[in-house]
Structure formats: C-alpha cells, structure tokens
C-alpha cells in the first residue's frame, strides 16, 4: 500500500511532528495496556533529553515513567528480565552510541533467550533510541548503528521516516511479543506530517511504504533521507519520475515492495545514513539482485556515510552527512 493510501484510509488525521507522533503512540499504549511502562535516563521529570516523553511522567507517574540511573547495561538487562517475567517495558537509550554499554544484554540475553529456551519465554521489550548526525553532537552522540541490530538474529528493527510511520511503528513495537528497536533520527523530530489519530492505527512490522509513486527510478530511503529524497524527487519532477519508498522496517524487511518497485522502474538508489560498508545498503542491494536482477537497467547506487565517524565541526559534518543532493546526483548518474 502507498503511504498516501494508508493516510487516506484513516478516518481522522492530524498534522503533527515526528516527536509528537511518537509521544502520541507511547501515550496511547500506556493508556491501553497497564503492563506497559517507560524506563530510561531522564525520561520522566526531564521529559527525555530530546523531549520525546515530555508530559508523560506528569500524566502517568513514577511507576510507569521511570527514571533510571545512567546504567545502560543495568536497565537494558532489567528490561530484558522484566519482559521475560510478565511486564512490557519500553526502554529509552538516550543516544544509540550508548548501545555498546548494554550490548551484552542485547545480544546474548534479549536476542537469544526465546530461542535458547526452545520458545518457552516471550520477550516483549521495546528499545527506543536516537540516531544521526546534523546537530554538531560529534562522534559519540551522532552515530547510526541500526545495521548492528538489524543484522543480529532475534531482534527486530524499525526506523521511521515520517510522522505517521513514527507513531504506527512505535505502537507496533510496544504491542509485539518480540524485542523491537525503534531508531529515531533526531534531525526529523520537528518534521511535520499527517498522522492518523485512531488509537488502533499501527504500522505492521515488515511493511515498507511507497511515499511517492514514480516510473523512472526507485529511491529506497530511511529516516531523514526519506523526506530529503521526497524533496529531491519534487525538484526533479520535470525531468525524471522518481518513486520514493520509506523502508520503515529494517528487520523484517519488505523485500516485495522494494522489488516490485524496481521491476517497474529498473533503477535503484538506496539512501540510508549508516556507514556504507557491510550494512543496510548492502542488504537491500542483495535482495533486489536476488528478486529483480533482470529488471535492472543501471548499476544500483548507494548513499550513506562514507565510513567515517560523525565529525564535530559543521563543514566536516556536512561533508560526510548524506543528504538530498547526494540522492539527486545518484539519480542523475543513472537516469
């Protein structure tokens, strides 16, 4: 389904930012299910360092919106143990760069317990975290690490590019009985979009969305690069018809929607802020060549961070941060 069709199907929508959409999703899930609670560093009184959970502590109180010590291994591990014993924690890792501190519990406990135990435990835990460069936060607060999680068996990973996807994926993550990581790009928290207000609206894990239909080239994008690709597509509209897909769910990945589009356009640009080597781009390219090799009319192009860390100084950061101009150049190269 196209994203437009998804929005049109909704009875009521409201314009709001990605930040507000995530907050709305969290609030609705907290109201819907008493087993759900939030935990993380400064998610409560402070409202989250990037204000995503602002107001929820006032509404739901200490028990359900819990400030943790600065202790990522401890509280991610506790969320894992809690999910195995009957509650549904939603943990926030303030910046995805901090994931390394908690990686043991993520990779060896959260991801493996259901499997190692022969399916005899549920693991309904959600981990929300922020990613991405663009605000001068330097190398330890700007990383894009979602390929680690999407790569690791036993974990699901989503990365919304629009406000509607942000709400719908957040809710689907909380409702899932599997561990789901929600990767929020911090540069699009202020991005506006129409969001279904229906409390039952979710975006199923594993479904991409066609955000803009086109005939000549497919841009498969994630997070901030979805919006930038849409702008680029509009700016090129007189010369080339660009289809833009928001991947939304990194794992499971909606191979079908992407392959269908490439069968139609014959050309593909993959745009994701991860470092280029061994990552999301490579996975999408592989699946497309498996499914639609004979439909390809040109080499697939990849737009990502060129295997550097995110530097601090603005001209350095802008040099390596992929953007709509990079997408335009890639489109022009193959059309």
């Amino acid at each position: 389904m196209t994203a437009q069709a998804e929005i049109e199907r909704a009875e009521e929508t409201e314009a709001m930012t990605v930040r507000e959409a995530i907050r709305m999703g969290l609030r609705e899930e907290l109201e819907r299910d008493e087993d759900v609670y939030l935990m993380g560093e400064d998610v409560g009184k402070f409202g989250g360092v990037l204000e995503v959970t602002s107001g929820l502590w006032e509404e739901f109180g200490d028990e359900r919106v819990r400030d943790t010590p600065i202790s990522e291994a401890g509280f991610i591990g506790a969320a894992t143990g809690a999910a195995a014993t009957g509650t549904r924690p939603v943990a926030e890792l303030m910046f995805s760069d901090f994931m390394g501190v908690s990686m043991e519990q993520i990779m060896n406990q959260m991801a493996k317990m259901r499997y190692m135990f022969g399916g005899k435990t549920e693991m309904p835990v959600t981990v929300r975290t922020t990613e991405g460069g663009g605000m001068g936060a330097a190398s330890q607060h700007s990383g894009t690490v979602h390929a680690w999680i999407a790569h690791f068996p036993g974990l699901k990973a989503v990365a919304p590019g629009t406000a509607a996807a942000a709400k719908g994926l957040t809710k689907a993550a909380v409702r899932s009985d599997d561990p789901v990581f929600v990767f929020e790009n911090k540069m699009i928290y202020e991005q506006q979009g129409e969001v279904p207000t229906d409390e039952e609206f979710t975006v199923p894990l594993g479904e991409a969305a066609v955000e803009r239909e086109g005939e000549d080239v497919t841009v498969v994008a994630t997070q901030r690069l979805v919006g930038e690709s849409l702008q680029t597509a509009d700016s090129l509209a007189d010369d080339v018809s660009v289809e833009v897909i928001d991947v939304r769910s990194l794992y499971p990945l909606d191979t079908e929607t992407i392959a269908d589009s490439v069968r139609k356009t014959g050309r593909l640009v993959v745009a994701d802020e991860s470092p280029l080597s061994y990552g999301v781009h490579a996975e999408i390219v592989s699946r497309v060549q498996e499914e639609a090799f004979f439909s390809l009319d040109a080499p697939i192009q990849r737009i990502g961070t060129p295997d550097t860390h995110m530097p601090f100084s603005p001209p350095l950061e802008q040099e390596v941060l992929p953007d709509g101009d990079d997408v335009r150049e890639a489109i022009e190269l193959i059309t």
């Binding site: 591990g77 143990g81 999910a83």
Partner: peptide, 12 residues
C-alpha cells in the same frame, strides 16, 4: 549476565 535479569524479574 544473570543479575540484570534477576533485577528485571524483581522489577516485574
């Protein structure tokens, strides 16, 4: 790795 899980069970 067990103690964080025990803390989590205690949290539930």
């Amino acid at each position: 790795a067990g103690p964080p899980l025990a803390t989590g069970a205690a949290l539930s």
